[in-house]
């Protein structure tokens, strides 16, 4: 039970990083990135390949950040003219392209068999239970750090300019803001955070395959950010833990129902997830912790 709890909390932390990434790009500059799973995959594969070649884990994490940021920049450049729904469709396609590359480029990614034996730092010396606990602490620390960093960004002049781009990109230009630069930087940073989440996932699981990066993850993260409150980093983090708790919770609920076989129970869970999203959007469309207006700093009364 303890290791199950540690596992769930660690996955919660990884989802929280993904939610922070989505909140930055969607809640920040208003770009709908349905390709989150793709950036997650790029990060995971980057570190698996680099550490598999003998590099230390820290270099693996760095290369995950870098690789996904570069893919993020390429996507933003390629989709500059697209907005709203069209950007969403392209990013959704991109995630599938990345997954199919992982599936087919066997020389690089080992195809459908996936990459196993990804270094789990210190696991062999401290044992599996201590590793799980230590890794949870590490992931949680990264989440807190990333949350503080993105909250700082949110409250900064950069965050204000980002939100202006989100609300009306043309008008932001008439306010003298460098719209293109803001979009590129926000997307690259967001992609890097998703990539970091992927790398942490890879080292935690020791095994990744294209199956781990289905578009469903992206949907879960959208659920998390919507539930937590779009445009507020704290909301994204809370939403992510809530979604993981809900996903795991429904597992037990489905088991408790009499006369439901395991296959039906699994389907029932998916339905409950959908129902939860509907319910949240209906009852609290602004999320648990909605975006707030920073009050004016009144230096004089």
């Amino acid at each position: 039970m303890l290791s199950y709890l540690l596992f769930t909390l660690t996955i919660g932390g990884i989802y929280a990083l993904l939610a922070l990434s989505l909140n930055l790009i969607w809640g920040g500059v208003g770009m709908v990135n349905l390709g989150l799973a793709g950036f997650f995959a790029v990060g995971a594969y980057a570190t698996a390949i680099v550490t598999g070649a003998g590099a230390p884990v820290i270099v693996g994490l760095g290369s995950a950040l870098l690789a996904s940021a570069i893919v993020g920049l390429l996507v933003t450049y390629g989709t500059l003219r697209l907005r709203g729904d069209y950007l969403a469709i392209v990013t959704l396609g991109l995630a599938e392209v990345i997954r199919l590359i992982a599936l087919n480029e066997r020389w690089l990614t080992n195809g459908a068999d996936g990459m196993s034996g990804i270094v789990a730092p210190l696991r062999s010396t401290v044992g599996s239970q201590a590793f799980n606990l230590g890794y949870l602490v590490f992931v949680s620390a990264v989440v807190i750090l990333m949350w503080l960093l993105l909250r700082r960004l949110d409250h900064s002049p950069f965050g204000r300019a980002m939100k202006a781009v989100r609300e009306d990109q043309e008008l932001a230009g008439f306010a003298g803001k460098p719209v293109l630069r803001l979009k590129l930087q926000a997307f690259a940073l967001s992609a890097a955070v998703a990539g970091l989440a992927g790398a942490l996932y890879g080292h935690f699981q020791s095994y990744i395959s294209p199956d781990h990066f289905q578009p469903l993850i992206t949907i879960y993260i959208f659920l998390a950010v919507s539930a937590g409150g779009v445009g507020r980093p704290a909301g994204a983090v809370i939403g992510a833990y809530a979604v993981v708790a809900f996903l795991e919770g429904t597992r037990f609920v489905a088991e408790l129902l009499p006369g439901v076989d395991p296959l039906q129970a699994a389907a029932l869970r998916e339905m409950l997830v959908g129902a939860a999203l509907l319910l949240i959007l209906h009852l609290r469309p602004q999320g648990l912790l909605p975006e707030r207006i920073q009050p004016a700093r009144k230096t004089r009364p």
Binding site: K163, E167, K177, E291, I293, P295
Partner: peptide, 13 residues
């Protein structure tokens, strides 16, 4: 205007 930004944020922007 930017619907979710305050008057102050508009001025600052």
């Amino acid at each position: 205007g930017f619907p979710k930004l305050s008057v102050f944020q508009h001025l600052m922007l």
